[in-house]
Amino acid sequence: MSYSHRFESLIEARIREARENGEFDDLPGAGKPIPGKGEPYDENWWIKQMMRREDLGDVALPASLRLARDLDRLPEQVRQLRSEQRVRETVADLNARVAAYRDRPTEPYVKVRPLDADEVVRAWRRRP
């Protein structure tokens, strides 16, 4: 039996003992689905996770992260609007910020793209 095999066996034994003693029973997230599993990959996942975890307000966020957050929150924001005109104005304002950022990006750099106003309006019309 090789040294590495004995070492792995020792680790597996410790894990088994801890499991049998219930040391893993009350871990945060136990029995819950893995966050984000099954969702499309998002390059800015770490930024969004940090913003949620740290409960960062507008004051603490650099402009690039505020823009990423606002893009992420757009579907929720437009769901509250009462007219198609307001939806289109909101998208136009956000697209202007995207264009300004893409012209002069600031750190931390985030990938953003303009939104399709017609697509946002279609989603807004389908809202419950």
Results as ranks from 00 to 15, higher is better:
Leu71Gly: 07
Leu65Ala: 07
Glu54Trp: 00
Gln49Asn: 12
Ala60His: 08
Ala68Lys: 08
Val59Asp: 12
Ala60Leu: 13
Ala92Gln: 04
Arg79Thr: 10
Pro75Met: 02
Glu76Ala: 13
Gln85Trp: 05
Glu39Gln: 15
Ala96Asn: 03
Arg79Ile: 09
Val98Phe: 11
Arg86Ile: 14
Met51Pro: 00
Arg66Pro: 00
Gly57His: 03
Trp45Asn: 10
Asn95Lys: 08
Gly38Ile: 01
Tyr41Phe: 13
Gly29Asn: 06
Asp70Lys: 08
Lys48Pro: 00
Arg52Gln: 12
Arg82Phe: 08
Leu71Val: 06
Glu54Val: 00
Glu84Met: 11
Trp46Arg: 15
Val78Asp: 02
Arg69Lys: 11
Gln85Leu: 13
Glu54Tyr: 01
Ser64Trp: 09
Lys32Trp: 03
Glu89Ser: 10
Trp45Leu: 14
Ala63Cys: 06
Arg88Leu: 12
Gln85Gly: 12
Arg73Ala: 13
Val91Gln: 03
Lys32Phe: 02
Asp70Pro: 04
Asn95Met: 11
Pro33Asn: 10
Ala92Thr: 10
Glu39Arg: 15
Gln77Tyr: 11
Pro75Val: 03
Pro62Gln: 04
Pro33Gln: 06
Ser64Gly: 07
Leu94Arg: 10
Ala96Leu: 09
Ile47Thr: 10
Asp42Ile: 06
Leu67Arg: 07
Val59Gly: 11
Glu89Thr: 09
Ile34Glu: 01
Leu71Asp: 02
Asp72Ile: 00
Gly29Ala: 02
Lys32Arg: 11
Ala92Asp: 12
Arg97Ala: 09
Tyr41Leu: 15
Ser64Cys: 05
Glu84Phe: 10
Gly36Lys: 07
Ala60Val: 03
Gly57Ala: 10
Asp72Gly: 07
Ser64Ala: 08
Lys37Asp: 03
Val98Ala: 06
Leu56Asn: 02
Tyr41Arg: 13
Ala92Cys: 08
Pro35Ala: 04
Gln85His: 09
Val98Leu: 05
Arg69Cys: 09
Arg53Tyr: 05
Ala92Phe: 07
Gln77Ser: 12
Arg53Cys: 02
Gly36Asn: 04
Arg52Phe: 04
Ile34Met: 05
Asp55Tyr: 06
Ala60Glu: 13
Asp70Thr: 09
Arg73Asn: 13
Leu94Gln: 08
Leu67Lys: 05
Glu43Ser: 14
Glu43Ile: 12
Asp55His: 14
Ser64Tyr: 05
Arg73Ile: 09
Met50Tyr: 07
Leu94Thr: 01
Leu74Glu: 01
Val87Trp: 00
Lys37Gln: 13
Ala63Pro: 02
Arg53Thr: 09
Asp70Phe: 00
Leu65Arg: 02
Pro35Asp: 01
Thr90Glu: 08
Gly29Val: 01
Ala92Asn: 08
Asp93Tyr: 13
Asp70Ile: 07
Ser64Lys: 04
Gly29Arg: 01
Asn44Ala: 15
Gln49Cys: 09
Ala96Ile: 06
Glu84Lys: 11
Ala96Glu: 04
Tyr41Gly: 10
Leu65Gly: 00
Val59Trp: 04
Arg53Val: 05
Glu43Gly: 15
Gly38Cys: 04
Arg66Ala: 03
Glu39Ser: 15
Leu74Gln: 03
Leu81Asn: 11
Arg79Pro: 00
